[in-house]
Write a protein that binds this DNA or RNA. Structure first.
Lengths: 177, 177
DNA sequence: CTATCATATATCAAAATGATATATCAAAAA
DNA sequence: TTTTTGATATATCATTTTGATATATGATAG
């Protein structure tokens, strides 16, 4: 993780759509982005502070209702950084699947344990697939916004790979029994 | 990552197969495990030190040829910890795909940039797929070892999902043009 | 009226990442 | 022959991420 802080790009991307607070950003990440990228308060707030200081963002503090609230806006410099990142040739794509790790070492225990672990995975994927499918359907029926195509394509990646996961689950369970 | 150090389980799993040095462990992780889990010297060596101190591993220092070398062996206590982990109900499975992140925010730049980024991804996946298919083929033709089924299933997960990725790439490029 | 939940910011320890430092040994190239 | 390259081998460090927790207010439900 050393080197280039990726959460910065997530934040710049979200702020290129709309002005948001740190809390809002967390909610957005937990939504449609969640299945291919994660974020936490622990890296969002420090990133916002740093990017405000380096001029990629501006902040507006409000305490109208009484509760403090800091809304961030992207600057032209911030937009430039976002574009430069989009145009970079390298991208790091990685899986971190504990289920596969357990299966790889499945020989250390009974086969039934491995089958059960695949079943747990299968149930989780089925749940997530429902959500992804509902995202897709919502985006298909409302193609007005120019960004919708991009949102649709990422959700559709999820749907198609998760369907492949489920097929693999069936096959893997069969081969273990 | 706070809470439970997952690299411990990777190391225990590998050492349940054979005795290894830290360097060997890194090589194993960079092999068949690499596509669903990563490891680095920066977390392998401290984990080995800690687990030796808590009695999950024993070490044997050699400097026969002149070069120092520390080979680790798993203890019964270590095997117990490995089994307990295999039998835990929860497993964290996550994607971290910068390509999807870029695509999600693709509206901030020209469509051609997004198409190009998908092409880069596609080429990478094609390369990785070749490697995974060769793993599968090697494991199919040598089913003697009881662990081979588990290795085969994880590699086969990779093959099937990567093939789904490639189908998605074709569709996504078409929809962007 | 009070418990619970969503909003909102912030910090911290633990862990992962990725780079770098150091040194030996074998093999290939000059 | 000497030198350079690349594999072996351990270790540490700064940066970043993770996941948990602390704190406090406003809204809503029982």
């Amino acid at each position: 993780m050393a080197r280039e802080r990726k959460i910065d790009m997530v934040i710049l991307g979200l702020l290129s759509h709309e002005n948001l607070t740190g809390y809002d950003i967390k909610k957005r990440i937990d939504g449609a982005i969640n299945f291919f990228w994660k974020g936490s308060f622990g890296n969002i707030y420090p990133a916002l502070r740093d990017m405000e200081q380096t001029g990629l963002l501006t902040k507006k503090e409000e305490s109208a209702g009484g509760r403090e609230k800091i809304t961030y806006r992207i600057t032209d410099e911030g937009k430039k950084v976002l574009k430069n990142w989009l145009r970079e040739e390298q991208a790091s794509n990685e899986l971190k699947y504990e289920t596969l790790l357990k299966l790889f070492f499945g020989g250390a225990d009974n086969k039934k344990i491995s089958v059960h672990n695949i079943e747990i995975f299968e149930e989780q994927i089925k749940e997530d697939l429902k959500v992804l499918k509902s995202y897709c359907k919502a985006l298909e029926s409302a193609p007005e916004d120019k960004d919708h195509l991009y949102f649709y394509l990422t959700a559709s990646f999820g749907v198609e790979t998760y369907e492949a996961y489920l097929k693999w689950c069936t096959k893997a369970k069969r081969m273990l029994q």
